[in-house]
């Protein structure tokens, strides 16, 4: 089961606080979408509006072409994996996973069979009779996923589902999530503040800030050709290029910048001489901190290829290539 999602001029405010400001987004059926942004950017509010836990102050939510703006959570073709999982502690894993089917009036034998099937998909069928408190964090996360998938939603919503896990488990779960999504083809909308996680799993990333969508595009595009300064900064390290090196006057609200891997001892745009102040070895590159020799004393971060490291304190001519043109406002 899968469906496309369309958000049309969705706004939401809590009292005087404008949490979402005129959101327009289209997700295709079967897409893995990640809403990415710092805390307080409105991404969780947007997810709750999709799930039916909040009614937007204005605008429309369409799922599979049907207007869902005023439809209650229990009647929507969406299910949510909550940040704290919200597994029912007094029920076994099987009863947790079968809960949605029970609410749909499925008989006990049938729903248990189905629950076990889904638990098998997440590799926990052997623990079906356990209670949630007997599980590890990663296992609980899987049960929450299984419970949400058991009712075959058209759109699955995930609210920072990996936030409570340690780094290694997180990376592993990202791959599993991606694999499960590929297998069942359901539209996934996943909220996170971790840009690496977003890059790892998304078909499309919507970068959000202050209740607005800054950029919505596939990961490569958001990283390589970001539209705004904010999304460029959020997706990775950035060096601002002073306008005088660009050789042409900048427009209003426009800045130029380059990723660390595009700063080096050769390239298209000369940045003048800079002194290497500090460097660290990262296996495939040296991460170097330079400081310009001119009056501005601009700081640069560059990733230099292994073996091409100047001496600390040495001044070398620095160049930027593939400069990014970024808007400072949406």
């Amino acid at each position: 089961m899968t469906a496309n999602v369309s958000l049309q001029s969705v706004s939401h405010s809590f009292g005087s606080f404008q949490a979402l400001n005129d959101i327009n987004l289209e997700f295709s059926a079967g897409e893995f979408v990640v809403l990415l942004g710092p805390s307080g950017c409105g991404k969780s509010t947007l997810l709750f509006i999709l799930g039916g836990f909040l009614t937007p102050t204005s605008g429309q939510v369409l799922i599979g072409g049907r207007d869902m703006s005023r439809v209650a959570a229990k009647d929507r073709p969406t299910t949510t994996v909550f940040q704290d999982y919200a597994l029912f502690p007094h029920m076994t894993l099987r009863d947790n996973v079968a809960f949605g089917l029970r609410m749909r009036g499925l008989g006990k034998a049938k729903r248990c069979l189905k629950a076990d099937e889904i638990l098998d998909l997440v590799g926990l069928v052997d623990k079906a009779s356990r209670k949630p408190h007997e599980l590890s964090g990663g296992q609980r996360q899987r049960v929450a996923l299984a419970r949400a998938l058991a009712v075959e939603p058209e759109v699955l919503l995930l609210d920072e589902p990996l936030g409570a896990l340690d780094l290694k488990l997180r990376r592993q779960m990202q791959e599993e999530l991606k694999a499960i999504q590929r297998k069942i083809g359901t539209t996934f909308v996943h909220v996170t503040h971790d840009q690496e996680e977003a890059m790892a799993i998304a078909d499309r990333i919507a970068v959000m800030n202050h209740g607005k969508v800054e950029h919505a595009a596939p990961p490569e595009e958001v990283y390589l050709r970001p539209k705004t300064l904010f999304s460029a900064n959020f997706m990775g390290d950035l060096n601002m290029i002073p306008e005088r090196f660009m050789g042409r006057p900048a427009g209003a609200n426009i800045v130029h910048a380059a990723r660390p891997e595009n700063i080096g001892t050769s390239g298209d745009i000369s940045l003048g001489d800079a002194t290497l102040e500090d460097a660290a070895f990262f296996g495939t590159y040296h991460r170097c901190h330079f400081r310009a020799a001119d009056a501005d004393r601009t700081a640069y971060v560059a990733h230099l290829p292994v073996g091409a490291l100047p001496q600390i304190g040495e001044a070398v001519p620095l160049y930027a290539s593939k400069p990014l043109t970024l808007g400072t406002e949406v």
Partner: peptide, 13 residues
């Protein structure tokens, strides 16, 4: 957690 009630409603209760 308020998410318990949300999760139940979400699953159709």
């Amino acid at each position: 957690s308020p998410n318990y009630a949300r999760a139940a409603a979400d699953l159709g209760a």
